[in-house]
Amino acid sequence: MATDYDAPRKNDEENEDSIEELKSRRNDKNSGKVDEDEVEAAEAFELPGADLSHEELTVRVLPRQADEFTCASCFLVKHRAQQAMEKNGLVYCVDCA
């Protein structure tokens, strides 16, 4: 282990002061507590498999655009630039072709 001989040395008095401070902090029972509302913190968490039956979802559906198609394999709406092939009247994207 390298030793820096140019670093200032600590006095024993400094160590005694810091030990006394640590002892007083340890005796202070409120020093480790965090002031946080548990109910408010719990509401922010989203648990997997949670019951969302009481929630409502509003979605605005746009009509089909002229430059879009729905892939017959993955059923995703894609831009015409991603069209790979058309077979039996069904259009497929480049990812599914």
Results as ranks from 00 to 15, higher is better:
residue 64 R to C: 06
residue 19 I to F: 06
residue 67 D to W: 06
residue 82 Q to T: 05
residue 46 E to R: 10
residue 80 R to E: 15
residue 24 S to V: 07
residue 56 E to L: 11
residue 67 D to F: 04
residue 91 V to F: 04
residue 3 T to S: 08
residue 28 D to E: 07
residue 27 N to K: 12
residue 39 V to K: 08
residue 35 D to G: 06
residue 31 S to H: 04
residue 82 Q to E: 14
residue 94 V to N: 09
residue 36 E to D: 06
residue 41 A to K: 03
residue 32 G to E: 04
residue 48 P to F: 03
residue 23 K to I: 07
residue 52 L to D: 11
residue 81 A to H: 12
residue 1 M to Q: 08
residue 76 L to N: 13
residue 59 V to N: 01
residue 56 E to G: 09
residue 84 A to Y: 03
residue 78 K to A: 01
residue 75 F to Y: 15
residue 32 G to N: 07
residue 37 D to F: 00
residue 64 R to T: 05
residue 45 F to D: 10
residue 22 L to C: 08
residue 49 G to F: 00
residue 42 A to V: 05
residue 72 A to V: 03
residue 37 D to C: 02
residue 68 E to Y: 02
residue 14 E to V: 02
residue 5 Y to A: 13
residue 24 S to G: 00
residue 10 K to H: 11
residue 75 F to M: 14
residue 10 K to I: 13
residue 77 V to F: 04
residue 58 T to C: 07
residue 88 N to Y: 14
residue 46 E to I: 15
residue 8 P to T: 08
residue 30 N to T: 14
residue 64 R to E: 14
residue 9 R to E: 15
residue 89 G to F: 00
residue 55 E to A: 11
residue 75 F to I: 01
residue 87 K to V: 08
residue 13 E to A: 13
residue 48 P to T: 03
residue 6 D to N: 14
residue 42 A to Q: 10
residue 4 D to E: 01
residue 47 L to N: 10
residue 11 N to G: 10
